[in-house]
């Protein structure tokens, strides 16, 4: 089972994702922004990051830049519900460009996310 950093500003989304991950035995640390996520990443060791894209303060793209910029190749699963003022399809290529391993679109079902995580961890 993996130790996962979950970065998500919506408390309800964060709760639901945490519950999905916990239901199969992953351990989860939650962060409400990119800045907080980065802080936790420096403090502990994680097997995987699940991150939202559109967040106040530091968003998911900025977080990815920081992580990959530091040479960290930790797997990153991006969860996205799209962004205001941008088409929904815009997020995936953007996240991929900045080093996300996979993008899962909100709203997703339990199995979708777990399968994505399984695939990324297997690589």
């Amino acid at each position: 089972m993996a130790h996962i950093l979950l970065v998500e500003d919506s408390p309800e989304v964060s709760l639901s994702v945490r519950e999905i991950l916990a239901s199969v035995g992953h351990t989860v640390e939650e962060a409400a922004s990119g800045t907080e996520g980065l802080k936790r990443l420096r403090a502990s060791k994680f097997d995987l990051i699940v991150s939202d894209i559109w967040m106040p303060e530091m968003d998911g793209i900025a977080l990815l830049k920081e992580i990959r910029g530091a040479g960290d190749d930790i797997p990153v699963v991006v969860i996205s519900g799209g962004a205001p003022n941008a088409p929904l399809t815009y997020t995936a290529p953007l996240a991929a460009t900045f080093g996300a391993n996979v993008v899962v679109y909100k709203p997703f079902e339990k199995a979708e996310l777990l399968k994505a995580i399984e695939t990324v961890l297997a690589d």
């Binding site: 919506s10 309800e12 989304v13 709760l15 639901s16 994702v17 519950e19 999905i20 239901s23 559109w54 969860i79 519900g81 799209g82 962004a83 205001p84 003022n85 941008a86 088409p87 929904l88 679109y105 909100k106 709203p107 997703f108 079902e109 339990k110």
Partner: peptide, 20 residues
Amino acid sequence: GGVAHEINNLLQPMLALSEL
């Protein structure tokens, strides 16, 4: 785009938590 972002973020817990 904005509506989708908001609604998706609300549908996400509704869908996941009902399932769980």
